[in-house]
C-alpha cells in the first residue's frame, strides 16, 4: 500500500458542558486513508462519525490528537496557511437543500473554489473548468446559469460534487452524502463517486450509517461505537468475518432482499449510552450479548485479528 494521504492519530473531540460534564463525541480515534482508497466510517447516529469528518475539515477544533495530510499536520494550522491547504480536502454534505447557497448560480457555486485557490489563470480557463466539471458530474450543460432550487435532490448533490471536485482535492469527506436521496438516485450518485474515484485517484472518507451502500463501494471500513473505533478492516474482513460483537449486530440488521433466507439476528437491547456518561471498561458491555466480567472492568485495546484487521474486544 502507498503512503497514506490522511492520517488521524488519537483524535479526540470533547465538548465541555455545564455542570462539569464532558461530552466525549470522539475519544481517541486513529486511522488512515490511502491514496485512491475509500474508508467508510459506520455507526449509529451520535457515535461521532460526523464529528470526525468535521474535525478533518477543520470546521471544529480538535481537543487532542493530530490530523496529517501527506505527513503534514493540519490540526495546528490557522489563517492563510490553513486556507491554502483546505484545497486538498473537500466535503459533500448530507442535505442537498441546505448545502448550496440559494442565491448563487450553479456556475458561481462551482467556480468559487477555483477562484479562491487560484486554479485558473484566466476567466476563459475558469469557464472551461466549470463547464468540464458540470459535464463530469453529468449535469445538463445549461445547468451553470440556473439556481440550485431549479434542481432535484440528486442533481443538487451532483452540483455539490462538482463544487468539491473544483478544488482538485486529494480527499473528499462524504458526510452521509447519499443518505437523503431515494434508492435509485442514491445508486446513481454512488456510481458517480466510484467512477470519479477511479478516474481521478481520489480518496474518499465515506461517512454513512447505510451498510448496504458501504458494502457496495468501500475498500475499508471502520466501525464506530460511542466515539471509538471498535473494529477496522477491509470490506471482506468486516462483512464476511466480522470479529467485534457490535459489528456482527450491525451486520445482522441489514435487510436482505430474499425473504426466504433465514439468518441469525442479533438484537441489541436498550439504547446507546450517553456520550456524557460512558460505561466503564468496554463501552459496549451494557448491550453486548457476550459480555464477561472482564469487559466491565478493563477497556479492550484494539488488537490485530488478521493482517490490517483490528478489533477492540476481549473475546476471541
Amino acid at each position: 500500500m502507498t503512503a497514506p494521504i490522511l492520517e488521524v492519530r488519537d483524535l479526540s473531540k470533547h465538548y465541555y458542558l455545564k455542570g462539569n460534564n464532558t461530552l466525549k463525541a470522539v475519544d481517541g480515534v486513529s486511522f488512515d486513508v490511502g491514496a485512491g482508497e475509500t474508508l467508510s466510517l459506520v455507526g449509529e447516529s451520535g457515535c461521532g462519525k460526523s464529528t470526525i469528518g468535521r474535525a478533518i475539515l477543520r470546521l471544529v477544533p480538535v481537543t487532542s490528537g493530530s490530523i496529517l495530510i501527506d505527513g503534514k499536520r493540519i490540526d495546528t494550522l490557522s489563517g492563510a496557511r490553513l486556507r491554502t491547504l483546505r484545497r486538498r480536502f473537500q466535503v459533500i454534505f448530507q442535505d442537498p437543500f441546505s448545502s448550496l447557497n440559494p442565491r448563487m448560480r450553479v456556475r458561481d457555486i462551482v467556480a468559487e473554489p477555483i477562484r479562491n485557490f487560484k486554479l485558473a489563470r484566466s476567466s476563459a480557463e475558469l469557464n472551461a473548468q466549470v463547464s468540464k466539471l458540470i459535464d463530469t458530474v453529468r449535469l445538463p450543460s445549461d445547468a451553470g446559469g440556473r439556481f440550485p432550487h431549479e434542481f432535484s435532490g440528486g442533481q443538487r448533490q451532483r452540483i455539490g460534487i462538482a463544487k468539491a471536485l473544483a478544488a482538485q482535492p486529494d480527499l473528499i469527506v462524504c458526510d452521509e452524502a447519499v443518505s437523503a436521496l431515494d434508492v435509485s438516485v442514491k445508486a446513481q450518485i454512488v456510481n458517480l463517486l466510484q467512477d470519479l474515484q477511479v478516474d481521478l485517484g481520489l480518496s474518499l472518507l465515506f461517512i454513512s450509517h447505510d451498510l448496504a451502500v458501504v458494502e457496495h463501494m468501500t475498500h475499508r471500513v471502520a466501525v464506530m461505537y460511542l466515539g471509538k473505533i471498535v473494529e477496522i478492516g477491509t470490506r471482506e474482513q468486516i462483512f464476511t468475518k466480522p470479529h467485534h460483537p457490535y459489528t456482527k449486530a450491525l451486520r445482522s440488521a441489514v435487510p436482505l432482499p430474499d425473504p426466504m433466507v433465514k439468518r441469525e439476528r442479533i438484537t441489541l437491547k436498550g439504547d446507546v449510552p450517553s456520550p456524557i456518561n460512558i460505561p466503564s471498561g468496554c463501552r459496549f458491555h451494557t448491550r453486548c450479548p457476550f459480555a464477561l466480567d472482564r469487559c466491565r472492568k478493563e477497556e479492550p485495546a484494539p488488537r490485530e485479528i488478521s493482517a490490517r484487521h483490528l478489533s477492540a474486544c476481549h473475546l476471541d
Partner: peptide, 10 residues
C-alpha cells in the same frame, strides 16, 4: 451547510 462548504472551499 453552504456556509461551512464555503469555508472548506477556502
Amino acid at each position: 451547510a453552504f456556509v461551512e462548504g464555503a469555508i472548506t472551499a477556502g
